[in-house]
């Protein structure tokens, strides 16, 4: 039979020589190999203290964004929920009352905004669908939880800290991914 590739290697079925039969020599060779590994650099990193960098296209937990004055951008239009292939997003809209202009950017806002992180597939379509730049995916992933209901993230979990009241936390939450994206735009 003609070989399809040239990578096939014939199996050697020679009877073992005396040195091979003694087996000791091969054991010694093996032990030298393990001894070398003893001093090799370890592949493991000490995880919580040390972290590997994320890929630039990593998509993690969602963040509900605010504008420069700290007002929520979301208008509860529902396009993200519509775009979501996993149907993980639900929201309830409410109308802005007089005097709340510093809290919500437009006349309509999301009174309730929930993402079920067990359903979410982190595809990022909500981010693409959003006309107001109100939702984006950050670089953190969902932490573990003891209960299923703990994975339903409400507004208090998703909303970014206000850039006016808490700028440090705000910039930390913005993260590299968002910043890189804005740079390229």
């Amino acid at each position: 039979m003609q070989a399809l590739t040239n990578r096939a290697k014939p199996v050697s079925r020679k009877p073992m020589t005396l040195v091979e039969k003694l087996y000791m020599w091969n054991i010694l060779k093996g032990m030298m190999i393990t001894l070398r590994h003893l001093f090799k650099k370890k592949a493991t990193i000490s995880y919580p203290e040390e972290k590997r960098p994320f890929s630039p296209v990593f998509r993690g937990l969602h963040i509900l964004n605010r504008d420069e004055e700290g007002r929520e951008r979301c208008t509860a239009c529902g396009l993200c929920a519509l775009a979501c292939p996993a149907e993980a997003i639900t929201m309830e809209a409410a109308e802005r009352l007089p005097g709340e202009e510093n809290k919500y950017r437009e006349e309509k806002y999301a009174a309730k905004y929930e993402i079920n992180m067990l359903r979410c597939i982190f595809c990022g379509l909500c981010e693409e669908a959003c006309p107001k730049d109100a939702i984006y995916l950050s670089e953190t992933f969902a932490p573990s939880n003891y209960q299923r209901k703990g994975f339903i993230y409400g507004k208090e979990d998703l909303l970014i800290p206000s850039p006016k009241e808490n700028p440090g936390e705000y910039w930390k939450a913005v993260g590299n991914r968002k910043a890189n994206k804005e740079q390229s735009n």
């Binding site: 590994h37 650099k41 370890k42 592949a43 493991t44 000490s46």
Partner: peptide, 12 residues
């Protein structure tokens, strides 16, 4: 020793 031989860190 097991960890070091297997290029891991072991209990730390």
């Amino acid at each position: 020793v097991a960890a070091f031989i297997q290029d891991r860190r072991g209990p730390n």
